[in-house]
Design a protein around this nucleic acid. Structure first.
Lengths: 192, 192
DNA sequence: CGGCTATGGCTAATCGAATTAGCCTTATGG
DNA sequence: CCATAAGGCTAATTCGATTAGCCATAGCCG
């Protein structure tokens, strides 16, 4: 009846779930150990401490997010791709506020780091969308960073306080996407 | 020879400076007390603990930011106001990364709360800009939220890791502002 | 089969930072 | 000149993270 031994993956996954449930602020080694039916120090056999756990959760979140958005934009292009991306992004962030919060403060080091690589994959999906709009290569970086600010800002606001968006969050989000779409689309005429 | 007694304001101001210097993560009661030439427990006569301190720093940051952007847009309208706002915003965030970080995770409660009110004033400045562009009242909320996501996202990315924006941050920021400007401006023709 | 070793869990102990309790000094104002 | 409250201090508590060092066992080799 040995409950299978834990692996680092188990610990990180459980940590991510815990963060989603109790909030990133309250993610603690003790609570996590309890959830895994183990004593706190045992976790250190799998993770290098709280900071390491946090970073791994961030990497997990970014990886999952990358998969979600990649799947969403499959077979879509232009506005459709943008809308699909946005929807997938918002859905993920809303469903996993704790996980995503882990990515907000995390430092990106450089290539080879899980979190960095996962972030790069998300950016690659954004870039694919932009290419679909025919954005000039010379403007790609700028457009990419702009999209990144927009989505990250949305996520941060959503995750932290659900910014008083008492009502109409979805409409505002759709409006935002429409705004970006109009801006990226080769000009075709009056905006309405 | 009594070094003037401390006030809550002194403590918060010093805390904000400390956060800017050592990073928000390392803001600690002990370090702050030391900087103020006082023992740790003494701080509790002025602030209600670390969480309270953080929240007050967030409120201070938002208040200062509000003053900075309000001053910047004075006498400007349209693109100029937007550009001035953006410049002031970026300058503030870059100069005070620790302070701004305090605002990122902070929960907004409701009217009457310093942080909430200060945030409302910043939003009011944004709204003024949007009105200058002739944005429909019905779209105001959506546009406001969009701007908020964009600026907050920029700040969050900037503050946390200075997102690998090794080069060209300023150009990208300008591009972003230009993008928004084109999107808000009543259509006048092809974008170039 | 019987022992070897690495892994993963445990208990006990340490550390550090926040916070609380309770005392003491002094500026202030009646 | 004294009463008092504000603001500092020391000592003590608490709680969470982390470390040290021990123990059981699964898988493997001779």
């Amino acid at each position: 009846m040995p409950r299978g031994r834990l692996t680092a993956t188990d610990v990180v996954r459980a940590g991510a779930e815990l963060a989603d449930e109790v909030g990133y602020q309250d993610l603690a080694m003790g609570a996590l150990a309890q959830r895994l039916g183990v004593r706190t120090p045992s976790l250190y056999k799998h993770v290098d401490g709280l900071d390491d756990l946090r970073r791994r959760i961030a990497a997990l979140a970014m990886t999952e997010l990358g998969e979600a958005v990649r799947a969403a934009i499959q077979g879509n292009a232009g506005s459709d791709a943008l809308a699909a991306f946005a929807r997938a992004f918002a859905t993920y962030v809303t469903a996993h506020p704790g996980r995503y919060t882990a990515t907000i403060g995390a430092e990106l080091t450089g290539p080879g780091d899980d979190l960095y690589d996962a972030s790069a994959r998300v950016l690659e999906s954004m870039a694919a969308i932009l290419r679909g709009y025919g954005v000039e290569e010379s403007e790609m970086d700028h457009a990419l960073r702009t999209l990144r600010c927009l989505f990250h800002g949305f996520a941060a606001l959503q995750a932290s306080n659900g910014f008083q968006w008492s009502g109409g969050v979805d409409e505002s989000f759709d409006w935002m996407i429409g705004f970006v779409d109009r801006g990226l689309r080769p000009e075709t005429g009056p905006k309405t």
